[in-house]
Design a protein around this nucleic acid. Sequence first.
DNA 1: GCATTTGCCTAAAGCCTGTAGGAAACCTAC
DNA 2: GTAGGTTTCCTACAGGCTTTAGGCAAATGC
Lengths: 189, 189
Amino acid sequence: MARAGLTPERLVAAAAELADEAGLAQVTASAVARRFDVRAASLYSHIGGTDDLRTGVALLALREMADRVAEALAGRSGRDALAAFAGAYRDYARAHPGRYEAARLPLDHETAMASAGVRHSELARAVLRGYDIAEPDQTHAVRLLGSVFHGYISLEAATGFSHTPVDSDASWQWTLDRLDALLRSGSAG
Amino acid sequence: MARAGLTPERLVAAAAELADEAGLAQVTASAVARRFDVRAASLYSHIGGTDDLRTGVALLALREMADRVAEALAGRSGRDALAAFAGAYRDYARAHPGRYEAARLPLDHETAMASAGVRHSELARAVLRGYDIAEPDQTHAVRLLGSVFHGYISLEAATGFSHTPVDSDASWQWTLDRLDALLRSGSAG
DNA sequence: GCATTTGCCTAAAGCCTGTAGGAAACCTAC
DNA sequence: GTAGGTTTCCTACAGGCTTTAGGCAAATGC
């Protein structure tokens, strides 16, 4: 019997594809095994189980998003940086909905601290450097950015904002404009 | 054999409790049956199955949230209304995390239109009446409110914003202040 | 070439979903 | 009060996913 060449990395990569195609709920040891033409039991020497697989997808997504956001941010500041930051997340979520979904899985503290999650808040702070906001307002602003972009993306994914005639892209631009103005009003708030 | 008195309403109510106690993922036909000391197969004449049960929790949560938000909004306007609106959602999510989670489930279009979901956007528009914002900006603003509050609540639930010394309530108040100012700057963009 | 390690296998137990058909409890009405 | 009909819950079963245990075959190393 020829070997399939299973590794944790390849299993997680397949799980990520499956998540994007069919949703995170379909990411199971069984379904991933099927992709490799292998029995489900064979995965268990490489990964801990279904939860592990999903956590792996989450960590992959956090890394990939941080990479893309960092790239989008290079050489930009102010409103440009804000739009690039937000756009990178939105584009990623649209291209990889299952991975994005996985990225919102709760991680235990240790795993979270070792993940690319920490880079995300650093990147948000990089955006805010264009706005001259001191602590503790800077932390508040990091949370605001995370909230509004994650919130928008997740509502857009769920509903598509589809039951009104107003275009979602227009709302996105409007939101970026207003956030830019909000941040520009600075620590003086 | 004494009858357990199963009804769709009682099953959904038990599912909602279970969701709050153990998370939406634990809401299964099996687990709910256990609560009634009944075989899982017995549920299937009352509800369609596990998905139905979760959808039922979602619809319940949407109704309950709309009720609470409407009550919180009564007699308020401006920043007061904004804070009451946002606070009602946040309080509900903290008191009923599983129901809140369920409320974000995607519903098919028909179900969504018949749900209390439509009341939520009406309530957001009620808050915005205190700010004199015309269409299409009003729609943009409805989406912004939904995004930022849902985003904040879901990030707060996932991470507790716990790995920094800055208090989450302080960020919440800061966010309300800034949003109030943002909306007050009005249609003048 | 032979021994060891590694990789995938089969087997099996346990839990969950959902369908089918049966029996007991409840209701209605005579 | 009891006969008939309906409702409610039951048992039985088929099928899927998870995960552990133990085996054989392929790859690796000496």
